[in-house]
Measured scan of single mutants.
Amino acid sequence: NKFNKELQWATWEILNLPNLNEEQVKAFIDSLRDDPSQSANLLAEAKKLNDAQA
């Protein structure tokens, strides 16, 4: 389904953001699992944090 694909994509993207530490990655992945419908928003937040920590 749509959420499953978005969840998989967001998870992959977050795992590959180079500037997030392990705790941050875990927190984003946990949030994705808690509410897959928020995957686009969570991915945007993760990318923003990744850029800020570059």
Rank of each mutant, 00 (worst) to 15 (best):
residue 43 L to S: 03
residue 42 L to N: 02
residue 29 I to F: 04
residue 12 W to I: 04
residue 16 N to E: 04
residue 21 N to M: 11
residue 46 A to K: 00
residue 17 L to F: 05
residue 40 A to F: 14
residue 24 Q to K: 02
residue 10 A to F: 14
residue 20 L to D: 00
residue 14 I to G: 01
residue 22 E to K: 11
residue 21 N to W: 08
residue 30 D to H: 14
residue 16 N to Y: 04
residue 17 L to Y: 05
residue 23 E to Y: 12
residue 33 R to P: 01
residue 46 A to H: 00
residue 10 A to V: 12
residue 49 L to R: 05
residue 29 I to L: 13
residue 45 E to Y: 15
residue 37 S to H: 06
residue 52 A to G: 07
residue 17 L to N: 01
residue 5 K to N: 10
residue 2 K to E: 15
residue 51 D to T: 10
residue 25 V to G: 03
residue 8 Q to P: 02
residue 36 P to Y: 04
residue 29 I to E: 02
residue 34 D to E: 12
residue 37 S to A: 08
residue 40 A to I: 10
residue 12 W to Y: 07
residue 42 L to M: 08
residue 13 E to D: 04
residue 32 L to K: 00
residue 17 L to M: 10
residue 31 S to H: 07
residue 25 V to I: 09
residue 32 L to D: 00
residue 10 A to Q: 03
residue 43 L to G: 01
residue 46 A to N: 00
residue 20 L to Y: 00
residue 23 E to H: 10
residue 31 S to M: 13
residue 2 K to P: 14
residue 2 K to R: 07
residue 48 K to V: 13
residue 39 S to I: 15
residue 7 L to G: 03
residue 17 L to E: 00
residue 13 E to K: 14
residue 31 S to G: 06
residue 41 N to Y: 15
residue 18 P to L: 08
residue 51 D to S: 13
residue 14 I to V: 06
residue 53 Q to H: 06
residue 11 T to P: 01
residue 19 N to I: 01
residue 5 K to V: 06
residue 52 A to N: 08
residue 27 A to Q: 07
residue 15 L to R: 13
residue 36 P to A: 05
residue 27 A to D: 07
residue 24 Q to L: 03
residue 25 V to L: 06
residue 8 Q to V: 08
residue 10 A to H: 04
residue 53 Q to G: 05
residue 10 A to R: 03
residue 12 W to T: 05
residue 43 L to R: 05
residue 35 D to Y: 06
residue 8 Q to I: 09
residue 6 E to P: 04
residue 30 D to P: 00
residue 53 Q to M: 13
residue 7 L to E: 07
residue 16 N to M: 10
residue 10 A to E: 02
residue 16 N to V: 04
residue 8 Q to W: 10
residue 2 K to D: 15
residue 5 K to D: 15
residue 30 D to Y: 15
residue 1 N to G: 06
residue 30 D to R: 15
residue 26 K to R: 09
residue 43 L to W: 05
residue 47 K to Y: 15
residue 16 N to P: 00
residue 26 K to E: 07
residue 20 L to M: 02
residue 44 A to V: 10
residue 49 L to M: 08
residue 48 K to D: 06
residue 29 I to V: 07
residue 52 A to S: 08
residue 50 N to H: 03
residue 49 L to Y: 05
residue 3 F to Q: 14
residue 11 T to N: 03
residue 14 I to T: 01
residue 27 A to L: 11
residue 39 S to G: 05
residue 40 A to V: 09
residue 37 S to Q: 08
residue 53 Q to F: 07
residue 42 L to S: 02
residue 13 E to Y: 15
residue 12 W to D: 05
residue 54 A to W: 13
residue 41 N to Q: 09
residue 18 P to F: 11
residue 15 L to D: 03
residue 18 P to G: 07
residue 40 A to Y: 15
residue 31 S to I: 06
residue 17 L to Q: 03
residue 25 V to N: 02
residue 11 T to Y: 06
residue 4 N to Q: 13
residue 11 T to L: 14
residue 36 P to I: 12
residue 48 K to Y: 11
residue 47 K to G: 04
residue 19 N to L: 05
residue 15 L to W: 07
residue 21 N to G: 08
residue 27 A to I: 11
residue 38 Q to M: 09
residue 38 Q to R: 11
residue 14 I to Y: 01
residue 6 E to V: 07
residue 41 N to P: 06
residue 37 S to P: 04
residue 44 A to R: 11
residue 38 Q to I: 09
residue 34 D to H: 12
residue 34 D to F: 13
residue 52 A to T: 11
residue 43 L to A: 05
residue 26 K to T: 07
residue 21 N to A: 11
residue 44 A to I: 10
residue 42 L to E: 01
residue 22 E to L: 11
residue 49 L to N: 02
residue 30 D to G: 14
residue 45 E to D: 08
residue 16 N to H: 13
residue 2 K to Y: 08
residue 41 N to V: 13
residue 42 L to A: 04
residue 13 E to H: 13
residue 37 S to G: 07
residue 33 R to A: 12
residue 23 E to P: 07
residue 33 R to E: 10
residue 45 E to N: 09
residue 52 A to I: 12
residue 47 K to P: 00
residue 26 K to Q: 08
residue 34 D to Q: 12
residue 46 A to Q: 00
residue 42 L to H: 04
residue 48 K to T: 06
residue 47 K to I: 08
residue 33 R to D: 04
residue 24 Q to Y: 02
residue 8 Q to T: 05
residue 40 A to R: 15
residue 43 L to V: 15
residue 44 A to Y: 11
residue 12 W to R: 04
residue 15 L to P: 01
residue 19 N to P: 00
residue 38 Q to L: 09
residue 9 W to N: 05
residue 50 N to I: 01
residue 18 P to Y: 11
residue 5 K to A: 07
residue 19 N to V: 02
residue 30 D to S: 15
residue 28 F to V: 02
residue 42 L to T: 08
residue 47 K to Q: 06
residue 53 Q to N: 08
residue 4 N to F: 11
residue 25 V to F: 03
residue 20 L to T: 00
residue 3 F to V: 15
residue 11 T to I: 13
residue 26 K to P: 00
residue 21 N to I: 08
residue 43 L to H: 03
residue 32 L to G: 01
residue 15 L to H: 07
residue 40 A to K: 12
residue 7 L to K: 02
residue 35 D to M: 08
residue 2 K to H: 15
residue 16 N to K: 12
residue 16 N to D: 03
residue 35 D to G: 04
residue 52 A to F: 10
residue 47 K to S: 05
residue 39 S to Q: 05
residue 35 D to T: 08
residue 42 L to Y: 08
residue 49 L to F: 05
residue 38 Q to N: 10
residue 38 Q to D: 10
residue 31 S to L: 12
residue 10 A to N: 03
residue 22 E to T: 10
residue 40 A to W: 14
residue 40 A to T: 07
residue 36 P to T: 04
residue 22 E to V: 12
residue 29 I to S: 03
residue 12 W to A: 05
residue 52 A to V: 10
residue 1 N to L: 02
residue 2 K to M: 13
residue 31 S to N: 10
residue 34 D to R: 14
residue 34 D to G: 13
residue 13 E to Q: 15
residue 49 L to A: 06
residue 13 E to G: 09
residue 51 D to N: 13
residue 37 S to V: 05
residue 14 I to Q: 01
residue 51 D to R: 13
residue 14 I to L: 11
residue 28 F to M: 04
residue 7 L to W: 08
residue 12 W to L: 04
residue 22 E to S: 13
residue 35 D to L: 06
residue 45 E to Q: 13
residue 29 I to R: 03
residue 1 N to H: 04
residue 49 L to G: 01
residue 23 E to W: 14
residue 38 Q to F: 05
residue 37 S to L: 07
residue 38 Q to W: 05
residue 21 N to H: 08
residue 12 W to Q: 06
residue 8 Q to S: 05
residue 18 P to N: 09
residue 22 E to Y: 12
residue 47 K to F: 13
residue 30 D to A: 15
residue 30 D to W: 14
residue 25 V to Y: 05
residue 26 K to L: 10
residue 33 R to F: 15
residue 23 E to K: 13
residue 4 N to H: 13
residue 23 E to T: 13
residue 18 P to Q: 10
residue 14 I to K: 01
residue 43 L to D: 00
residue 20 L to Q: 00
residue 54 A to K: 06
residue 17 L to V: 00
residue 39 S to V: 15
residue 24 Q to N: 02
residue 49 L to T: 06
residue 38 Q to H: 06
residue 53 Q to P: 04
residue 41 N to E: 12
residue 24 Q to T: 04
residue 34 D to Y: 13
residue 37 S to N: 07
residue 14 I to R: 00
residue 23 E to D: 12
residue 17 L to R: 00
residue 48 K to A: 11
residue 36 P to K: 02
residue 41 N to F: 15
residue 54 A to L: 09
residue 47 K to W: 14
residue 31 S to K: 14
residue 54 A to G: 08
residue 51 D to P: 01
residue 40 A to G: 06
residue 4 N to A: 07
residue 28 F to P: 00
residue 17 L to P: 00
residue 10 A to D: 02
residue 50 N to K: 01
residue 25 V to P: 00
residue 21 N to F: 10
residue 1 N to K: 04
residue 5 K to I: 04
residue 43 L to I: 07
residue 41 N to A: 09
residue 48 K to E: 10
residue 17 L to G: 00
residue 28 F to L: 04
residue 16 N to T: 08
residue 36 P to F: 11
residue 3 F to I: 15
residue 34 D to T: 11
residue 30 D to I: 13
residue 37 S to R: 06
residue 42 L to R: 06
residue 53 Q to V: 08
residue 45 E to S: 11
residue 19 N to Q: 04
residue 3 F to E: 14
